[in-house]
Simulated assay, not measured.
Amino acid sequence: MTPTVEQLEKALLTMAKLVSSREDGEAYLPICRRLEAEINQRRSAQSYLERIKGMASSQMA
């Protein structure tokens, strides 16, 4: 099952806490970057989908 944006955001917050609380926290930054990139990609895709649907519905009216 594909995680939701909300689940990815929760995971990113958990990772941010881990990075902040551990001496070796910097080692986990690649995971944070990947989570953040996935969140941004999903938001962008959703925004694009909404714009396309909006264009279609405005032409149907």
Results as ranks from 00 to 15, higher is better:
33 R>D: 15
55 M>V: 04
19 V>W: 07
38 E>N: 13
25 G>T: 00
19 V>M: 14
38 E>Y: 12
15 M>F: 06
59 Q>S: 08
35 L>S: 04
14 T>P: 03
54 G>M: 08
22 R>N: 14
5 V>S: 01
57 S>D: 07
60 M>R: 10
16 A>N: 12
53 K>P: 00
14 T>M: 10
4 T>N: 01
37 A>Y: 07
61 A>W: 02
60 M>F: 04
60 M>W: 03
5 V>Y: 00
7 Q>S: 11
39 I>S: 09
22 R>C: 14
58 S>L: 08
60 M>C: 06
59 Q>W: 01
17 K>R: 01
23 E>L: 10
52 I>W: 00
29 L>K: 09
9 E>Q: 00
25 G>M: 05
29 L>S: 11
44 S>R: 03
55 M>H: 00
34 R>W: 09
41 Q>G: 08
34 R>K: 08
4 T>V: 02
42 R>F: 05
12 L>A: 12
15 M>A: 10
51 R>Q: 05
10 K>T: 06
36 E>W: 11
30 P>V: 14
59 Q>R: 01
48 Y>W: 07
48 Y>A: 11
54 G>I: 04
13 L>S: 10
37 A>W: 04
48 Y>E: 15
41 Q>I: 10
48 Y>I: 04
37 A>E: 15
33 R>E: 14
15 M>K: 06
41 Q>P: 03
21 S>F: 12
32 C>H: 04
